[in-house]
């Protein structure tokens, strides 16, 4: 458990800050302060203000909420169909397996970011179109992993023992296979969570994700980029740090989880 302390601490602090922070820091992320355009960090605006006088801290917190929410949505929306497809593929086998896996292969053949972009453009852009694009690109990862896990676990003698005691395929699935696969899938979930955050920030950055006034880390970086060279570093550094912390935290979590859970697995 002590291995998990650091990633949980990083993500916990970030989550606490972005979800509880707005209770203390009550400035609206869209509100413009006409007395302070591009103001440097100060007591009034700890992360400064942007070109239209909006408070960067309030936007940072709102952007963090959005990123964590979107990470969770992508994780769950990719996991459920992916795990089901992998399970059906491994369990039914034959033609069903071939067809499902070739479909997954064709999705995975596209670089994930390009696929997400194509879906986002096809659906007319916007945050939720981009989210759907990212979800589609994660499904094959979950499906392939689930399929290989089911097949790996099914080859152990304890499954044969269960069948010899009269365990039906449905029973061995519930009693042995799914609980085993769940640990591996959990690790995959953690890494997809980080992947979703960085990909959506990337899509926001190139203008295919969240749209301009929305406080979203990728959009904030795009908006602040032109001021990076003129010295207003706070516009890009803070959302950049936000992405960094979230992604380092989730990747560390995925890494440590696989170490901790891998210990009990044969």
């Amino acid at each position: 458990m002590r291995h998990l302390f650091l990633p949980f601490a990083i993500l916990g602090v970030l989550a606490l800050a972005v979800f509880l922070g707005p209770l203390l820091w009550r400035i609206d992320p869209l509100e413009m302060d006409f007395t302070a355009f591009l103001a440097a960090p100060s007591l009034d605006h700890p992360m400064g203000t942007d070109a239209t006088g909006r408070d960067v801290l309030a936007r940072f917190l709102a952007g963090g909420r959005l990123s964590l929410l979107v990470g969770a949505v992508v994780m769950i929306a990719g996991l459920v169909p992916g795990a089901l497809i992998g399970l059906i593929s491994a369990r039914v086998g034959g033609l069903v397996d071939t067809v499902l896996m070739r479909v997954m292969d064709s999705i995975a053949a596209f670089p994930p970011i390009l696929l997400a972009m194509a879906v986002a453009i096809g659906l007319g852009g916007g945050l939720w179109a981009a989210v759907l694009g990212v979800v589609v690109s994660t499904v094959p990862f979950f499906a392939r992993l689930m399929r290989s896990e089911v097949m790996r676990i099914r080859s152990f003698p304890f499954i044969e023992a269960s069948e010899a005691m009269g365990g039906t395929p449905w029973f061995t699935l519930r009693w042995h296979i799914v609980p085993h696969a769940a640990t591996t899938m959990l690790v995959q979930c953690a890494s997809v969570f980080g992947y979703a955050i960085i990909t959506l920030a990337g899509l926001g950055f190139v203008g295919l994700g969240a749209e301009v006034p929305t406080p979203e880390w990728g959009v904030m970086i795009t908006e602040g980029m032109q001021y990076a060279l003129t010295g207003q570093w706070w516009l890009t550094i803070f959302p950049g740090l936000g992405i960094l912390i979230a992604v380092v935290g989730t990747n560390l979590l995925a890494d440590r989880l696989s170490k901790v859970l891998g210990g009990g697995n044969s």
Binding site: P157, F158, A161
Partner: peptide, 23 residues
Amino acid sequence: ALKPFRQQVQPVFQDSAGALDPR
């Protein structure tokens, strides 16, 4: 239909580690 037979005839495996669910 095999259930009564399954109860009567049981295996013991060579690989004692693999034969038990490690979880």
